[in-house]
């Protein structure tokens, strides 16, 4: 199934790029663009489901498999915010980010055809991982928006702040849900809901930095300080997701697969 990924992903990228372009070019109606982007999303989801059937367990285990979901969710989030709040540029950026992750998957798949070990055979497996990746997608979009807001700091415009806050609140909602589902699962599987496993440590740091952002916003700290918290948090998120396996402190983690 993975051998077909290049064709599926090329078709999806094509649909998404033409879709975004038509949102920009066709000022009168967004229908064509919306249909094209939705078709791309449907095709991508179809690939994930076919892969799921092919390998016989949810494709959520290897790094490459989680990147696959990320490519899907980031575009979904970008498209959702476009439908909800009319930010055209965000769809474009999320398609770009999705493309980067697709490219990584094509160049360095990190897919090993291994069996699903007993520890991962649990009803908590799918919600724990998908909710997490959904939150990563929200935060990815928030980070993109924060960079643009940082560039606009001089103009005193705060037009992006409602979007950034919304994405961060929703992202944190998913992140906390993912972490708590993981805690409940851990109690069933390992005997304790929190053991400061390296992945847990970094997930905690990531959540803490986003919580700091939200509290700093409530406290009305100056934007030139607050806006830098989001890129910082996103770096922590990337370490949690992709970097932990390479850290010397993480050898022996229960999360290394």
């Amino acid at each position: 199934m993975w051998d077909n990924f290049i064709w599926f992903s090329l078709a999806c990228m094509l649909l998404w790029i033409i879709g975004v372009a038509s949102l920009y070019l066709n000022k009168k109606t967004a229908i064509t663009g919306n249909i094209l982007i939705s078709a791309g999303l449907a095709l991508f989801l179809a690939f994930i489901l076919l892969l799921w059937r092919d390998i016989g367990h949810p494709p959520l285990r290897t790094m490459g498999e989680t990147r696959l979901w990320y490519s899907f969710f980031i575009t979904l989030v970008g498209f959702g915010t476009w439908l909800r709040w009319r930010y055209k540029w965000l769809v474009g950026y999320s398609v770009l980010v999705s493309g980067v992750f697709i490219a990584v998957n094509l160049l360095k798949p990190e897919i090993h055809f291994t069996n699903l070990m007993p520890a991962l055979q649990s009803i908590w497996f799918v919600p724990h991982v998908t909710v997490y990746i959904l939150s990563y997608a929200m935060f990815g979009a928030a980070t993109i928006a924060s960079f643009i807001a940082i560039r606009e700091l001089k103009s005193k415009s705060e037009r992006l702040m409602p979007l950034i806050d919304n994405l961060t609140y929703i992202g944190l909602g998913f992140l906390m849900t993912g972490m708590l589902l993981g805690a409940i699962w851990a109690k069933e599987a390992w005997g304790d809901y929190w053991t400061w496993d390296p992945k847990e440590v970094w997930a905690f740091i990531t959540a803490a930095v986003y919580v700091i952002y939200i509290h700093a916003r409530v406290q009305k700290y100056p934007l030139r300080v607050i806006l830098w918290i989001l890129p910082l948090a996103f770096v922590m998120l990337m370490i949690t997701w992709l970097g932990v396996n390479y850290l010397p402190a993480a050898q022996g983690s229960i999360h290394v697969y």
Binding site: D165, L172, T177
Partner: peptide, 14 residues
């Protein structure tokens, strides 16, 4: 906290 997280979805940044 899970219910609290759900309130974050509809509350958003407002």
């Amino acid at each position: 906290m899970i219910f609290g997280a759900i309130t974050l979805f509809w509350k958003g940044g407002k």
